[in-house]
């Protein structure tokens, strides 16, 4: 289903968990919504969970990489988490290595990387 993606706010962190296939238009809207949310809430970190993606083409990869760089300009560090092996292999084979973007295995790791400690 193509629909909207909720942007969750936990303290100064924004969490974007994309569980559906993105059309090009939705991907662009999403980028815009995230940047607006950063401005509105004054966040310091952004975690984008892409566990739900079973493939990522250069268009979506570019949007993700750009969002990360734009967020950095606005003072927010981004971590992309949960990339599947198939997606990583495909992107690298296409020559798209997403330099300058940070990655973590899962949400837990991603938040840890951003300096959050989740109480257990």
């Amino acid at each position: 289903m193509i629909g909207s993606v909720p942007i969750l706010r936990i303290g100064r962190t924004l969490l974007l968990s994309i569980q559906l296939e993105l059309s090009d238009a939705v991907a662009e809207t999403l980028q815009n919504d995230v940047l607006l949310a950063i401005e509105k809430h004054g966040t310091s970190s952004l975690v984008i969970d892409i566990t739900g993606f079973d493939f990522v083409d250069t268009y979506v990869a570019r949007i993700l990489a750009e969002t990360s760089k734009m967020a950095r300009l606005m003072g927010t560090e981004t971590v992309i988490v949960g990339m599947r092996p198939e997606v990583a292999a495909t992107l690298v084979r296409m020559g798209y290595t997403m330099e300058g973007v940070r990655f973590a295995l899962d949400l837990d790791e991603g938040l840890g990387l951003l300096g959050h400690v989740i109480a257990r």
């Binding site: 079973d54 493939f55 083409d57 250069t58 268009y59 599947r84 198939e86 292999a89 084979r93």
Partner: peptide, 17 residues
């Protein structure tokens, strides 16, 4: 296999676009 499915789906996405 899942890698080949991701590969051909991605290639398709690029080419249709």
């Amino acid at each position: 296999d899942s890698f080949a499915v991701a590969a051909v789906t991605t290639a398709t996405s690029e080419l249709v676009r």
